[in-house]
Design a protein around this nucleic acid. Structure first.
Length: 751
DNA sequence: ACACCAATCGTTTTT
DNA sequence: CGATTGGTGT
């Protein structure tokens, strides 16, 4: 058995798999077989050490990672794995808190506030306090609060240590914010972790229960954990000392979300008996790419000493190119993709374009449309963040937890019910003063439960009537929870709340919004089918923690457009990184910051992108970017890539859409491109390129078409020529590949 | 209370 | 340049 489990593992991987009775730190370089080690280690525990699957806990940071680990483990273990707990930190904690809720005086059906909810709450609090502080936005306040929470600093401690006016203000908001969450029976993401920590700290019998249950704890992407998460891990693993953490400090790119790179860097100090395994053989990339990555990362000071190596061949040189502006840069990228795909060297699903900020995708998308290239934009507009979805979810949350004021305020006047700002601010301030939720105030007003005199509130008759109707409507909805299925319930709310009519009247994107709601109803249907606990509360939790129906999978032949952050954990044969300019990557904020570790993180971000590539890597930059269009310097990171590894894109100001000439890159000395610090801003020789018109071409690669003479065929190439397009079509029946001009060919699309 | 218009604003990454 | 905020008028 042992031989089977350890088969195909290299010595370091084997060492990591077999180290099961000691703290373990695995430094897993990119492409070093990390997932393999984790899954095989689980198998080893179960089959070799006869550990029950129930005693194994795997924690990850993202849902993607959790579900991937789940798939890999169950693939390896033939379903005998049933019982291994693999989940994200956040959902693990949420599960725990629901189970132990009464100990913390928490309602079991607490609501989880996401980013948007938090912002709207903080905005409301700022307004209530009526203090104006310049340059302090709700977002700034929230990020400070979140930072404190992820370091386990409560509001009172924060207040004691406040050293200036802004911090005092923040402390005040922090205090109010906590009170508001409490009143609404709501937890934010940080609370899920923090309350779990408190639970373990204050209830020894609880922590020992879970220590006994989970004797083997593994944490993936350990470099992304924050202080609280690490503290929880220690609480869990204290009894056995059996904590295995896997990660790569060089891929720590989430410090802005309070991940602490020191967790992994000083793990060995916390656990002096820990075995440290260094996975330094790379199986993913060509030697050139790997060496480039190494050169890129080596100036960093906060890192683990690791020298990656590979048995892979050298492969192609890295391609570096510059466009005049972002449009030209996009043109270079997309036409090159079109080129290598038409030549059959790669398919679209082999290729990814990565960038620092989401807004960079726009220029790329336009060119994709122009060339008829299918693409998928990873995670830009999150399904559950869309307005109509959030609105309907808010109704559901309110049914589940009437005290959830944020959700109430969100939907009480959507669609318009004549409950305006005046009314709401009266209710709100009354609720604050009486330390109760708004729903509670309404109960008191209409159910006559207490001393609140209607006239004392100063509400108009119309407002009262509208409030009464809203309350009745919510009560009706609540009645359906036990009698109808989840999808039916959503359908009823959609219809009877007037939301359906509401979005129909906004005919602009009625179709799209309606489809989104259909999608939500479908999702609810799937959820009911697949989960034994299909309660409303469970559904809402899955919505806020599991989030998107996992990135729509990689179906079909599509080019991937993705941010560098999101690319972590993925790999592609061909990778383009766009925007290698100072100010973009590294981002301007990290350059301006007096904290040098921010710059190091940008470097790691670039490193993550580079190490996604298996065979070919293109690094692109643009001379002018954005609407300001100011000239920019090449990214300082480029200076750390040696010229020996690089080939310049032979593009020197010619019109881009003429031919594929510039794709024919040849090694040449290029004065145009100087990696040194004395870089001169190049003069662009031609006049500003004309605005290209985006013509909506009829055909794209992959379309099936019929031709009068040649018969049926499939489009394999597609090159725009002015308003027209030159098509390469592979016809059936031995006719072969023909080049045709779109406007003359009279092709018909067939299915 | 609501709809529309103007001005402003601030530009990262997200469980 | 785009989205969001604020103010206006009905």
């Amino acid at each position: 058995m042992e031989s089977v489990i350890l088969q195909g593992l290299n010595p370091q991987q084997t060492e990591a798999v077999k180290a099961v009775d000691t703290p373990l730190l695995v430094i897993a370089g990119p492409g070093s077989g990390k997932t393999k080690v984790i899954t095989h280690r689980v198998a080893y525990l179960i089959y070799e050490k006869h550990v029950s699957p129930f005693e194994i806990l795997g924690l990850t940071f993202t849902n993607k990672a959790a579900s991937e680990m789940n798939d890999r483990v169950s693939g390896l273990l033939d379903n005998s794995v049933a019982g291994v707990t693999i989940s994200t930190f956040h959902s693990f904690c949420a599960m725990l808190l629901r189970r132990e809720s009464e100990k913390l005086g928490l309602k079991q059906n607490f609501t989880i506030y996401d980013d948007q909810d938090q912002v709207s709450l903080v905005k409301k609090l700022v307004k209530q306090l009526d203090i104006d502080v310049d340059n302090v936005t709700p977002r700034t306040l929230l990020s400070q609060i979140s930072k404190a929470k992820s370091k386990m600093v409560g509001w009172s401690t924060y207040q004691e240590n406040a050293g200036n006016y802004i911090q005092e203000f923040t402390a005040k908001i922090y205090e109010e914010y906590e009170a508001a969450l409490n009143l609404s029976s709501a937890l934010d993401f940080d609370d899920l972790l923090l309350k779990t920590y408190h639970l373990f700290r204050d209830y020894p019998e609880v922590v020992s229960k879970y220590q006994e249950r989970f004797k083997y704890v593994m944490i993936d992407e350990f470099q992304d954990t924050n202080i609280t998460q690490y503290a929880i891990s220690k609480q869990l693993a204290l009894a056995t000392g059996n904590l295995a953490v896997v990660g790569d400090p060089n891929q720590s790119i989430y410090s802005w979300r309070n991940a602490d790179i020191h967790n992994i860097l000083s793990f060995h100090d916390d656990f002096p008996t820990a075995k440290v395994v260094n996975l330094d053989q790379n199986y993913r990339s060509t030697r050139t790419i790997l060496e480039t990555a190494q050169n890129l990362i080596s100036p960093n000071t906060e890192k683990f000493d690791q020298k990656l190596w590979t048995e892979n061949s050298g492969g192609q040189p890295i391609v570096i190119g510059e466009g005049y502006n972002e449009k030209e840069e996009a043109e270079m990228i997309i036409s090159e993709i079109n080129n290598i795909v038409s030549k059959g060297e790669y398919s679209l699903s082999d290729i990814a374009i990565m960038y620092r900020v989401n807004s960079q995708s726009r220029a790329l998308e336009e060119k994709c449309i122009k060339y008829g290239i299918k693409y998928q934009l990873v995670g830009s507009l999150k399904f559950y963040q869309r307005q109509e979805i959030k609105d309907l979810i808010a109704f559901l949350r309110l049914i589940n937890n009437p005290d959830d004021d944020v959700s109430l305020l969100r939907v009480i006047n959507v669609p318009a019910r004549g409950i305006g700002q005046k009314t709401l601010s009266i209710l709100s301030s009354f609720a604050v003063n009486s330390k109760s939720s708004i729903a509670n105030v309404l109960d008191q007003v209409f159910a006559g439960e207490s001393s609140i005199e209607i006239k004392d509130l100063g509400l108009t008759k119309a407002a009262l009537k509208n409030l009464f109707n809203f309350r009745e409507m919510m009560a009706d909805f609540k009645g359906y929870v036990s009698t109808r299925s989840l999808p039916e319930l959503i359908e009823i709310i959609f219809d009877q709340s007037g939301y359906k009519n509401h979005i129909m009247n906004e005919s602009e994107n009625y179709q799209e919004r309606n489809e989104n709601i259909r999608e939500l109803i479908n999702t609810a249907g799937y959820f009911s089918k697949e989960n034994t606990n299909d309660s409303l509360s469970a559904f809402l939790e899955s919505v806020s923690l599991v989030g998107d129906t996992d990135n729509l999978s990689y179906q079909g032949q599509k080019l991937t457009l993705i941010t560098l952050h999101q690319s972590k954990g993925l790999e592609f044969p061909v990778v383009f990184i766009s925007g290698l300019e100072d100010g973009m990557l590294p981002h301007i904020r990290s350059i301006d910051s007096e904290n040098p570790s921010e710059l190091e993180e940008e470097r790691r971000l670039c490193y993550v992108g580079v190490t996604r590539a298996k065979e070919r890597l293109y690094l692109l930059r643009s001379f002018r970017r954005g609407f300001r269009g100011e000239p920019s310097l090449p990214s300082r990171f480029l200076a750390d890539i040696t010229k020996a590894q690089v080939v310049s894109w032979n593009f020197s100001g010619e019109k881009v859409n003429q031919s594929n000439k510039y794709v024919d890159y040849q090694l040449h000395q290029d004065e145009h491109f100087d990696l040194g610090p004395d870089y001169d801003i190049p003069e662009y020789k031609d006049s500003e390129p004309k605005e290209e018109q985006i013509s909506f071409n009829q055909f794209k690669v992959g379309d099936k078409v019929a031709h009068k003479v040649f018969g049926d065929g499939i489009i394999i190439g597609c090159k725009p020529i002015d308003e027209d397009q030159e098509l390469q079509v592979a016809f059936k029946d031995g006719i072969g590949i023909k080049k045709l001009l779109g406007s003359f060919a009279k092709l018909e699309e067939i299915n």
